[in-house]
Design a binder for these strands. Sequence first.
RNA 1: GUUUCGGUAGCUCAGCUGGAUAGAGCAUUCGCCUUCUAAGCGAACGGUCGGGGGUUCGAAUCCCUCCCGAAACGCCA
Length: 564
Amino acid sequence: MDYRQLVAEAIHNELKDHMELNEINRLLERPKHAEHGDIAFPAFQLARLFRKNPAQIAQELGDSITSPVISSTQVIGPYINFYLNKKTVSQSVINDVIKEKGHYGELSIGNGGNVPIDMSSPNIAKPMSMGHLRSTVIGNALSNILAKVGFSPIRINHLGDWGTQFGKLITAYKKWGNEEDVRSEPIKELLRLYVKFHDEAEDDPTLEDEGRAWFRELESGNEEAVALWKWFREESLKEFEKVYERLNISFDSYNGEAFYNDKMSDVVSLLDEHKLLTVDQGAHIVDLDKYDLNPALIKKSDGATLYMTRDLAAALYRKDNYDFSQSLYVVGQEQSNHFKQLKAVLKELDFDWADSIHHIPFGLITKDGKKLSTRKGKVVLLEEVLNEATAQALQQIEDKNPNLPDKETVAEQVGVGAVVFHDLKNDRLNNFDFTIEEVVQFEGETGPYVQYTRARAMSILRKAGVESLSPSEPFALSDDYSWEVVKLLHDYPDTVRRAYENYEPSIIAKHAIQLAQAFNKFYANVRVLDEDPEKDARLALVFAITEILKEDLRILGVETPDEM
RNA sequence: GUUUCGGUAGCUCAGCUGGAUAGAGCAUUCGCCUUCUAAGCGAACGGUCGGGGGUUCGAAUCCCUCCCGAAACGCCA
């Protein structure tokens, strides 16, 4: 049931010749204060239309609007406030959820269209940082949201597995590294070598030359260089897999930068055929003046290709391979310019699908107010954050629920859940300064709060012996605490739609928090298991809540322990 | 300097396409476990919505301008 639509139709019945249904729907609003009813219609626009005082219009119109979902109407000044029929609406909404369970809120906007999502994309030989976490969890949540509204997401891990840094790394390894250390702790050791290289290079600039030389060797297929590269890549991937496993995220493709090595010359020829390339200071560029953008650098003055070249190759490959309906890039906002250029170049190539490419930017994570830098060894290691969160979750369990079975598993779900939820709960463009205390929190607007809320609800169902419900029974409720929950359940499809339209997982996270808050108030004030004529309906509501909280968290990539 | 984001309670943030007395969480203080998990609930405290103009019946929200912060700005990705 969509009661907003029903109310709009009821109003439209009275205003047929004066206002479109859509317009009415647009004007309807949810009052901020409970004493203003459940849904309100302001009469200001009508005042202009009828050249009358809006309060007077509201007064005249108010009583004539009727509908089975409206239980009463109250006019306050220029507002017509509607109170909905709680029993009718709650019964309908609860049954909708019970019928559809996790599928509730699914939409068919996507028509099954493929949507490659460029996400995570860590650099080989570097540890996963909090920054990669953002791309990973936002990308994952967006994939789930897209699937929920009918697209077929394709998760692509565009690994940073090529570039001059490998020349530097090979140089550093040959100078200061050994096989054993790399094997035992690959990322840590490779990072140490990488940082050492940059330290030493400050005093000894010839190192940079050596690094470039080794990269040239790698590009031209030098056996030793290629072997080292492959080895570094494998070891790194193994480490990344551990993290992805903890986050419960998998990919459909690991085609990274190296994958496009043999596909870039085609891009260059294509640009050339379209007469788009010009030479400037020895470099090949595409002029983008008419887009008010800097030129896109396609080839360096030494002939080497660049990031842009590679991303063009990737965009073309994805179009050919997936025939996507849209293509997303979950990449930090500091690269906005790059993606504007990318789209502009594709437009210059006359590809009409250029507009279906969307950069999904996100804010920067800083530490002590400063940008993180791998080169300077200034990193927040994701794995350490997850470990700390899990350890604290375990401590919490020991304190509060020491008899809980399988504590370690739950601690992992809660700890990781806290970190992931924290990353998704705010507008993705917000910057934030990393502190472990802030990320690992279990109270208030956090992942564990939502998980805990659901665990309490599950506990009620367990005690009542409810495992599943069929939607036939009359689950009508009318108390205020249930009503707040019912309204949030009702809003779910619209929430999903908004999350999709804005590519914004935080909209789902906020819904989860609101629903959890509403349920906790209900829980504190309404006894579910007591014998009461409404007992079955209350259990049905609790069941509906567990389903939607679980679905909210599933979309965000947060697990849901039944007990904690 | 140019462009793009941002400035709302002590801190972190909501506030949907302008609407009725600006909301949460954290922190602080206080109350609630003989009743379904207190990772909870309730209460108190806390705001010139960066400043100034403008549009409007109505502006935290839209426009202009100024101040402050962050990021990007041709051979890194």
